[in-house]
């Protein structure tokens, strides 16, 4: 109980202090980032208590705070669209659709409309929320993503030109993968004799994926890893602080 009181005092006390001393509004969060980040790095190298326990606690806290980001997202959406309706901005009528959809789903989900008991799962058979998920959410999300099939076809026709040597290499690789990952690839070159089996399209496609593609992806992966490591270090050390926002308020 002592530690809990101390932690609560530190948390609320630091916020209280920052109310009156404006520079602390950035200083305390930076300190907290430094502490959390370092703790997780140290926990990897020193697997002795209290570090594993602290890592576990912070992971738990992270997961609970993450839920509030869902609420924040919903709240923000509601705020933006209500403002749009109020100010009668362009296409404000559609914002009514967004807000209505949001409110209806929120109400049927939080009140478990259609279930017999409060202890029933929120996605139980017969609930309005499950019906909404299957009838509204699934077709909307799935169809929006499926539109990309049409656009990728259009892009293939209009944009993929063998203008340079590099573009030609890209196109040839894409062709071999596209044919090689379907039964057509098997039929097309199945007549090849044994010594030429490497050129059998599925084999060629597997080779491209597991050798040159692997090399390219590894290089990209190593590059990204170095970028993430340096950005993480900058964040922990407070060099990168754009997440704090521009001004105190």
């Amino acid at each position: 109980m002592f530690f809990l009181t101390l932690l609560l005092l530190l948390l609320l006390g630091s916020v209280g202090l920052a109310f009156f001393i404006r520079p602390l509004r950035k200083f305390f969060p930076l300190l907290l980032t430094l502490f959390t980040g370092l703790l997780l790095v140290v926990a990897l190298f020193i697997p002795a208590q209290p570090f594993p326990k602290l890592e576990e606690e912070f992971s738990m806290w992270f997961d609970v705070i993450a839920v509030f980001s869902f609420i924040l997202g919903g709240g923000n959406l509601l705020r933006v669209h209500l403002m749009k309706i109020q100010q009668k901005k362009r296409d404000w009528q559609y914002s009514i659709v967004t807000v209505t959809g949001f409110v209806i789903v929120l109400v049927i989900g939080l009140f478990k409309v259609g279930s017999k008991n409060w202890s029933d799962p929120y996605l139980a058979q017969g609930t309005a929320f499950k019906w909404m998920y299957d009838a509204v959410f699934v077709p909307l999300q799935a169809t929006i993503f499926s539109l990309l099939a049409f656009f990728v076809a259009s892009a293939a026709f209009r944009a993929f030109r063998a203008k340079t040597r590099e573009a030609t290499i890209l196109l040839v690789a894409a062709f071999i993968i596209l044919i090689g990952r379907t039964p057509v690839g098997v039929w097309l070159t199945s007549w090849l004799p044994n010594p030429l089996q490497f050129f059998h399209i599925p084999n060629l496609s597997t080779w491209i994926l597991s050798v040159p593609n692997m090399a390219g992806q590894r290089a990209i992966m190593i590059g990204i890893a170095l970028g993430i490591i340096s950005t993480s270090l900058k964040m922990i050390l407070g060099i990168e602080r754009s997440w704090l926002g521009g001004d105190e308020s």
């Binding site: 919903g74 914002s95 967004t98 789903v105 939080l110 909307l140 999300q141 929006i144």
Partner: peptide, 18 residues
Amino acid sequence: EHLFVGVSAAYWMVVGFW
């Protein structure tokens, strides 16, 4: 499209809550 935005945001909130 607008319905999808509203429904998705509420869906995440409900799931996170329960």
